[in-house]
């Protein structure tokens, strides 16, 4: 579904991504992990079609990506919600910009806000919400357009552990329910292991992928409490530290 070919992205003379190749299959959940500054956000901007690569290309469903894509939902690192719009307007913005009728928008937004348990807050502004609620709205907005691909850049990193886990569970549910293809960027090892069917570890400095680990246990909420989960965390951690496991 997503096919990244020899991607090169540079700021000035520095190559942030250098001949990066990766594939994500349809309805696969792919977690990308790596230390701060290794180029994760840069890669996500590329996958979202927000910036053009210097070399190489990204092919999605057989067509080369040149612009943003109607069926890609995006949740960015910090600036998800617009502070001057209510929860309701924020959640419906993706649909509005894509030209859906008010009627359709109202129905979808109501359904999704209810589903994500934030319908009560619909008249409030983002600053009046907790971090977890804000992220729910960002998720609501991203899935309101019925995306086939969902790109997320450290969506839960600012949250406390309990809230984060409940939102991770929510993602598993949405993944099954909506048949999503997910690319999730994180610097949290547990999150990568829990939400990654395929875990991509980026090289800390040279702009390539260091290692890809498949995770056959993905998709079960109970996985978090198993020894397999902890083993996999250990494996990812030692890969990131550069030691063989």
């Amino acid at each position: 579904m997503i096919d990244v070919h020899n991607l090169v992205v540079q700021y000035g003379q520095t190559k942030i991504l250098n001949n990066l190749n990766m594939q994500v299959k349809r309805n696969e959940s792919c977690a990308i992990i790596g230390p701060s500054g290794c180029g994760k956000t840069t890669l996500l901007y590329q996958l979202a079609g927000l910036r053009k690569p210097n070399e190489g290309k990204i092919i999605i469903n057989g067509t080369t990506l040149t612009d943003i894509r109607d069926k890609t939902g995006v949740i960015l690192q910090n600036y998800g919600l617009l502070p001057w719009k209510t929860v309701w307007d924020n959640a419906g913005l993706g649909l509005k910009l894509r030209g859906f009728s008010k009627n359709h928008r109202d129905n979808v937004v109501k359904m999704i806000l209810t589903e994500l348990n934030v319908y009560q807050q619909r008249r409030q502004y983002p600053t009046q919400l907790s971090g977890g609620q804000q992220q729910r709205i960002a998720i609501a907005r991203a899935i309101s357009i019925e995306p086939d691909i969902l790109l997320m850049d450290e969506p839960f990193s600012a949250l406390d552990a309990i809230t984060r886990e409940s939102l991770q569970d929510l993602m598993i549910k949405l993944y099954h329910q909506k048949q999503l293809t997910i690319v999730l960027i994180t610097h949290n090892i547990e999150e990568a292991v829990f939400l990654g069917e395929k875990i991509i570890i980026m090289h800390p400095s040279n702009g390539t992928i260091k290692k890809i680990i498949d995770n056959p246990h993905f998709g079960d909420k109970a996985f978090r409490n198993t020894t397999d989960f902890h083993k996999l965390c250990v494996e990812v951690r030692s890969e990131m530290a550069g030691r063989p496991s």
Partner: peptide, 17 residues
């Protein structure tokens, strides 16, 4: 910030929007 423009563009906004 650049991010806020990325955020709104990723939702499919054109220049006027």
């Amino acid at each position: 910030s650049r991010e806020i423009f990325y955020s709104i563009s990723s939702l499919g906004a054109n220049k006027w929007q």
